[in-house]
Simulated scan of single mutants.
Amino acid sequence: MLLDRDKSQLLIIDVQDKLLGAIAGKDRVVDRCIRLVRAARALEVPITVSEQYPQGLGPTVDPIRDALANAAFVADKVEFSCLKNDLLRERLHRLRREGRPQVVVAGIETHVCVLQTAIDLEDQGFEAFIVADAVGSRAKTSRKLALTRLGKGGADVVDSEMVMFEWLERAGTPAFKELQALIK
């Protein structure tokens, strides 16, 4: 199944300073999250951001916050799965009721919050798309195991370019020209 920007929502999970420092490939994760945020904003795909215990772990990292430009619903949580948090669950389900059952998921850590959220998304009738180049864990093996488990469990494992090209659908449009720089 292809992603459809009119049926999609973007979920960025817990990309926070005190968590990010230990993540393998952290620069790639941040860069790809920014790419997804910019594409979502340009294509009017709703964005939700979770922050794991921000009082202790700090807010979402500045480069992603700058890209969001206040265009996202941000909620703090202590639960590992976003679907176990009342505010986040209500937001995701409301967007699904509005015709957006496809949830594009990025963030950290792949084997904890991303994995548990994606499993819950699938169990609750969403279509979860895990962006492999926009997720990370402290250990590369944990990330790899989580992506394998998610793929076997029914989630679609994609990369950021797949998301962008599927959302765009064709070249030569104003949206394509606007996002072309993100792809190069």
Rank of each mutant, 00 (worst) to 15 (best):
C33S: 06
K152T: 06
A106P: 02
L147Q: 05
D76M: 05
Q116F: 12
V104F: 02
T117H: 10
R96L: 06
A155D: 01
M162Q: 04
D17I: 10
V37G: 03
Y53Q: 11
T141P: 02
Q124I: 05
G21F: 11
Y53S: 11
F80R: 12
V45I: 14
D4C: 06
V74Q: 01
E169W: 01
I119V: 13
G58C: 11
S8W: 01
Q55F: 06
L121K: 07
T141R: 15
V37Y: 01
T48W: 00
I64W: 03
A155S: 15
A22V: 14
A181I: 09
V78Y: 10
W167A: 06
D4I: 08
D31K: 15
S50L: 03
V49K: 04
K140E: 13
V114G: 00
D120T: 11
I183A: 12
D120S: 13
Q55L: 14
F80L: 13
V131H: 00
G136F: 02
L92N: 00
S137K: 11
I23Q: 03
A71W: 09
S137R: 10
L95H: 02
N70D: 15
K140N: 09
A171C: 10
D6P: 01
V114H: 03
A24I: 09
T141Q: 14
A22W: 13
I119A: 04
E109A: 09
S137N: 09
P101S: 08
G58P: 03
A128N: 06
C113T: 05
V104N: 01
A146Y: 02
T173K: 12
A40T: 03
E51Y: 05
L11Y: 07
A134T: 07
L182Q: 13
A106G: 03
R91I: 02
E109V: 15
Q116E: 14
L147G: 01
I23Y: 01
D86G: 01
E109D: 07
K84F: 07
R65D: 03
M162A: 05
D6N: 12
D120Y: 08
K140S: 10
A72F: 04
C82E: 01
V131N: 00
V135I: 11
L88K: 09
N85P: 05
A42E: 12
V163F: 05
A118D: 03
K7Y: 02
K144N: 08
N70W: 11
V30K: 06
P59V: 04
A128Q: 07
Y53F: 12
L88I: 15
R28T: 08
P46W: 11
A69C: 11
V157H: 06
A69K: 15
N70Y: 10
R138I: 09
L115W: 15
A39H: 05
F165T: 13
R170A: 07
Q102A: 00
G56N: 08
V131C: 00
L57T: 08
K184P: 02
